[in-house]
Design a protein around this nucleic acid. Structure first.
Lengths: 217, 217
DNA sequence: TAGATTGTTAATCGATTAACAATC
DNA sequence: TAGATTGTTAATCGATTAACAATC
């Protein structure tokens, strides 16, 4: 019974549900009610039921939800039952750290290649991968058919790189640059990570904590 | 005329306004109307005016906004006119990359120290900093009075670490773990970066792009 | 069956958009 | 002054919460 368009607010909560259900499962929970879950997650039970009902009926009246079934269903909705081949563009500090830090396989992806234009980085090992020269990108893509890409390159290189990647068949971008991919391309999945904006927001939070705005100033 | 409580939606847009205004300034813009800005940013002019009016009257009827004045005002709201001393906890791949990649000074912070419990990492250089042993944390804090911290440590170490940091006077957390800081502490500024959730959301986006949900299934 | 808890509809709340009077 | 564009109020839209009938 999946409804046609799911609001962004709901989508953003799904990974968190998935995480919490995983922890519950690890802690031996077999069933959980929306109320119990709401208390653990700091949401309302209503919202949880509304959220789940966007995708189907996963519970049972009088019982609640089966933790592992629900987790499996949400995993399926999130596309975690497949592993999409993914490549990294830009093997500098950030790209390398992301590539080593993230558990791709449990997030629906498989990191199969890394590229950089800096000759000094080419050949560098990132886990089991070694960084390739960017000139090998097209050949690699036609042979290995990656569908997703991580962008850890300078903003100035982003537009051209995205054009190339799209023409190579990339459909999903985990974008650590400020370049707005959707300006020139549609029918792509984009997830932007604006680390700088995030830190700026923290500055705001600290500023208002220390210096609370008064009514009349 | 700052209103008392600004909605989260507004706050999240502020860093982006600040960035765009910076680019406009670099491109020689002196003034801009809410309509022009709305077209560049993909928002409505109404929303832009509403957002700015949460904090004061920064424009002029019949003219628009002075780009550099407006940017300065938003910078002040974001607390970018001061640089809060900040420390890094966890100098692994991710911590190191964040510390080297981010332009702290332009985001309201000054990274003055880095700590790790792994003896192999102690002494490692991150830019001009060298990683200190975690045992030096308290002494360092009492001497240097950092107010903000970046958490790039394992989830399992987070609760204890946050308790310590709070007792050392830390008031703002840039949190790359999944530990929920606000459960045990109030009156702290927290900005969570859930990279794993972000990638999971990308998986959802790709999944629904490739496999659009139909009305009746 | 009685109790519990879902799925879902209705009510509320908040955020976005539209409209326009104020004014530069 | 006339034209432009803000600041702000009112209307709309969407998301969250509350309520409750359905049902396990």
């Amino acid at each position: 019974m999946s409804k046609n368009s799911i609001s962004n607010s709901v989508i953003r909560r799904l990974p968190r549900y998935y995480r919490f259900l995983g922890e519950l499962e690890n802690n031996g929970y077999v069933r959980i009610s929306s109320r119990e879950l709401s208390e653990k997650m700091g949401l309302t039970a209503s919202q949880i039921r509304q959220d789940f009902n966007c995708f189907g009926e996963f519970g049972q009246q009088g019982y609640g939800y089966n933790v592992s079934d629900l987790r499996f269903e949400i995993g399926k909705i999130l596309g975690l039952n497949v592993q999409t081949p993914m490549i990294l563009l830009g093997a500098g500090n950030l790209g390398t750290a992301i590539a080593s830090h993230i558990d791709f396989k449990n997030k629906g992806f498989d990191l199969i290649g890394a590229f950089d234009s800096n000759p000094e980085l080419v050949g560098k090992k990132i886990g089991s991968l070694s960084v390739r020269d960017i000139s090998e990108l097209e050949k690699f893509c036609s042979e290995n058919k990656p569908v997703a890409a991580i962008l850890c390159i300078p903003m100035s290189a982003a537009e051209k790189m995205v054009d190339t990647l799209i023409s190579c068949g990339i459909k999903a971008f985990w974008n650590f640059t400020h370049y707005d991919i959707r300006i020139n391309h549609e029918n792509v999945a984009v997830e932007n990570v604006h680390l700088g904006d995030s830190l700026t927001t923290l500055s705001y939070g600290l500023n208002t904590l220390i210096n609370p705005p008064s009514d009349d100033e």
